[in-house]
Computed example of a mutant assay.
Amino acid sequence: MESRTGKRAAAAGGKRAESGRPRPSLSPRLIVEACLELMDTVGADALTFRRIGAQLGADPTALYRHFRNKDDLLLAVADHLLEEGLEGLEPSDDWRQTLRGLFIRIHKVYLSHPRAAVLATVRITRRPAEMRVIEMTLTALSDAGFSPEEAVRHYRALVDSVLAWSCMDATYCTLDAHTRRGDESAWSGEYAVVPAATHPHIAAAAPYLASVEDGANFHFALDLMLDAIAARAPSNPA
Rank of each mutant, 00 (worst) to 15 (best):
T5Y: 04
G6W: 15
G6V: 06
K7V: 14
A10G: 04
A12W: 08
G13Q: 11
G14V: 09
G14K: 06
R21Q: 14
R21V: 13
P22S: 02
P24N: 05
P24V: 09
S25M: 10
L26E: 06
I31A: 02
V32M: 04
L36R: 10
L38K: 04
M39D: 02
T41W: 01
A44P: 08
D45T: 15
A46V: 00
L47W: 02
F49S: 13
A54Y: 07
A54V: 12
A54M: 09
Q55L: 05
L56V: 14
P60Y: 05
L63R: 12
L63Q: 07
L63M: 12
R68N: 03
R68E: 00
R68H: 10
N69V: 13
D71N: 15
L75A: 12
V77L: 13
V77G: 03
H80L: 02
E83G: 11
E84Q: 13
E84W: 01
L89N: 06
P91S: 04
S92V: 07
D94G: 01
W95K: 00
R96T: 04
T98N: 01
G101C: 02
K108M: 05
V109R: 00
V109S: 01
A116W: 14
A120V: 13
V122W: 03
R123I: 06
R123D: 04
R127L: 14
M131N: 13
I134P: 00
E135H: 10
E135A: 15
T137Y: 00
T139K: 03
A140K: 01
L141M: 02
A144L: 02
G145H: 04
F146A: 08
S147N: 07
S147L: 02
P148F: 03
P148R: 05
V152N: 00
H154A: 04
Y155A: 01
V159I: 10
S161N: 10
A170S: 15
R180P: 01
G182F: 07
E184K: 13
A186I: 10
G189Q: 08
A196L: 05
A197W: 07
T198K: 12
I202P: 05
A203R: 14
A204T: 14
Y208G: 01
S211H: 12
S211P: 00
V212Q: 05
E213I: 12
D214N: 05
G215K: 08
N217R: 09
F218R: 05
F220D: 11
A221I: 14
L226D: 06
A228E: 15
A231N: 08
A233Y: 08
P237Q: 09
